[in-house]
Design a protein around this nucleic acid. Structure first.
Length: 448
RNA sequence: GCCCCCAUCGUCUAGUGGACUAGGACGCGGCCCUUUCAAGGCCAAAACUCGGGUUCGAAUCCCGGUGGGGGCACCA
């Protein structure tokens, strides 16, 4: 079976951990099966969609490595949507309604106080031509609802197993607004059929929608006389580390923000690919490796916790294993040489922190003198001439022999004097980079 | 309010009536190593949401409580 999936963000906001997880799973699934990944921009809402958001979404996806094989915007396909909705009207699948938003709201509140679910009562179906004419004469324009079958829709969800939606418990969905604008539902169904989407992979907030959409898709297939229903996979949503829903904090969880915070794309994909599955979360710099092990069988049904501190920790691990060549351009941009990178990477949690160590090693610092006698003695023992990777050991041995200090009492004052920091990279690696001249000055307590 | 889904170590989970003394990974703690921190190696601690029922036997099946998530838009 040919696999074709789509990720369909709406350019009304930014990409965040929640929707990126859906994008990633679509991508991993289709890559693991040699299929296609389509990026569809759901921009039917002209007022809220912006070009900036769309550009941001594309650049975030590219940054994450989620390349697409095909992309299009729904705003380019209105004529197709018109064609299908005309056919729906002919088949009485689409009916005009004249209630205002306030009237609908009042109806819902009334149902709720009676303990009933707020489902549309289909009053518009009983309207006579004369009544409709009267509304039109009043200046009202209709919005259009799709007439659901009121039967039970059933499908085998790849994650949830057999799933059932009773369409009698759902309102007939509004497909076209009073102003003639399409809501996302119909365009989405038409596109999924026209582009032969084989699998719809998304969050479980769409489970009820799937029931409705299956009915609409069936009608689209009839109109088009072609196409097939996709299979569905609805995954649970992420919750915060506090066990509460994520929606309120989404701003701080945007990909844009993470990128600004120095999180590597592979840290995000490594975590999001495995979180909520039976497989361990491990640093995986290669996203294709993630695709190889992707399997719906291993996905749990319960909401999974997304903890930012876990992402930060994973980011550090990825950095520790990152060879210079993989990020050479980014490092040279901040003036970090391969030598420097290899000396300090084991202590970084963000790449940008390399410049911090660059400043310590190459710039000037005020040394911290913890043991004046020891550091002054040490200053006189720094080997003359260029330092090598062996210099540190012989230097420390000499200091030990002449002062009697050992262990922490030996190391700690030297580190503080030479770097001004409590902890940091392996001294043997950074000692030659600091250089003998600077080391002598710092050990004697002067800025250098 | 109504409907749907879910519930195992701190976290993600394995587990489909006896093979469970409940397994793994991450994290946490301890030890070793490195003449400091980190990294690495080793070792430990740590869980079946509660109450009923079915059964010779329940983490596993059923009912109920509690808790969490989702849905019920002229948003997506």
């Amino acid at each position: 079976m040919t696999v074709t999936v789509r990720f369909a963000p709406s350019p009304t906001g930014k990409l965040h951990v929640g929707n990126v997880r859906a994008a990633l799973w679509n991508w991993l699934f289709t890559r693991s099966r040699g299929g296609e990944f389509i990026l569809r921009i759901d921009d039917t809402d002209k007022e809220r969609s912006t070009k900036e958001n769309e550009d941001r979404i594309r650049s975030d996806l590219e940054w994450l490595g989620l390349c697409w094989d095909k992309t299009f915007s729904q705003s380019s396909r209105f004529s197709e949507y018109d064609r299908v909705s005309d056919a729906f009207r002919d088949r009485q699948l689409l009916y005009p309604c004249y209630e205002t938003a306030e009237e609908l709201d009042r109806k819902r509140r009334l149902q709720r106080t009676r303990g009933l679910p707020p489902v549309y009562d289909r009053a518009a179906l009983d309207l006579t031509d004369a009544q409709r004419g009267a509304f039109e004469a009043e200046g009202r324009r209709p919005h259009w609802r799709f007439k659901l079958s009121h039967e039970t829709v059933k499908w085998i969800d790849l994650i949830r197993g057999e799933t059932v939606v009773d369409t009698a418990s759902v309102s007939d969905p509004v497909l076209i607004r009073e102003d003639g604008m399409y809501l996302y539902t119909l365009p989405s169904c038409i596109d999924d059929i026209d582009y032969s989407i084989s699998h719809v992979i998304r969050g479980e907030d769409h489970v009820t929608n799937a029931g409705v959409q299956i009915e609409i898709m069936k009608a689209v297939i009839e109109v088009r006389r072609a196409g097939a229903l996709p299979r569905f996979a609805h995954h649970s949503l992420l919750i915060g580390a506090d066990g509460q829903g994520l929606s309120k904090r989404l701003g701080s969880l945007s990909i844009e923000q993470m990128r600004a915070d120095g999180i590597e794309p592979s840290a995000i994909t490594s975590l999001l690919a495995k979180l909520g599955t039976a497989e361990p979360v491990l640093p995986q710099p290669n996203i294709m490796e993630l695709a190889k092990s992707f399997d719906f069988e291993k996905v749990g049904r319960a909401p999974a916790r997304f903890d930012e501190s876990e992402l930060v920790a994973l980011n550090a691990k990825i950095l520790h294993e990152l060879p210079y060549a993989a990020i050479a351009n980014r490092l040279s941009a901040i003036g970090v040489s391969e030598e420097l990178w290899n000396a300090v990477k084991g202590n970084l949690s963000r790449i940008a922190d390399a410049s911090l160590w660059k400043a310590v090693i190459e710039g000037e610092i005020d040394p911290v003198i913890e043991d004046r006698a020891l550091s002054e003695k040490a200053a006189s023992l720094v080997p003359m001439g260029p330092l090598t990777s062996d210099s540190w050991d012989s230097f420390v041995n000499e200091v030990k022999a002449q002062t009697g200090a050992k262990g922490r009492a030996l190391f700690h004052p030297l580190r503080l004097a030479l770097t001004g920091m409590e902890k940091g990279p392996e001294m043997a690696a950074i000692f030659p980079l600091i250089g003998g001249e600077k080391a002598r000055v710092r050990l004697s307590g002067k800025r250098a």
